[in-house]
């Protein structure tokens, strides 16, 4: 019964359009920020079609 419930929930969830944001299951749609190398726009969207590891960090 629990398995069936979980399956139903999963299928209901997949029918809902994906939300945008930075949490698991959300589409990362953050606007471009300047690249540190040339100050030109850079965003994760450039890498659609590829698997991305994104680090938020600081050099300190």
């Amino acid at each position: 019964m629990m398995t069936l419930g979980a399956l139903t929930l999963a299928s209901a969830m997949t029918a809902v359009p994906v939300k945008t944001g930075t949490e698991v299951g959300q589409a990362w749609l953050v606007a471009a920020l300047p690249s540190v190398s040339d100050a030109k726009p850079l965003s994760v969207a450039r890498f659609r079609g590829r698997r991305v590891m994104l680090h938020q960090f600081a050099s300190w």
Partner: peptide, 27 residues
């Protein structure tokens, strides 16, 4: 490639944070 968020537009309140994002752009 590295972008700079000097204004903290993304609103994260700490570092480091690592994300794995699939080919569709989903975290």
């Amino acid at each position: 490639p590295v972008a700079v968020d000097a204004l903290n537009r993304l609103g994260f309140d700490g570092v480091p944070i690592t994300f794995l994002i699939d080919e569709h752009g989903v975290v």
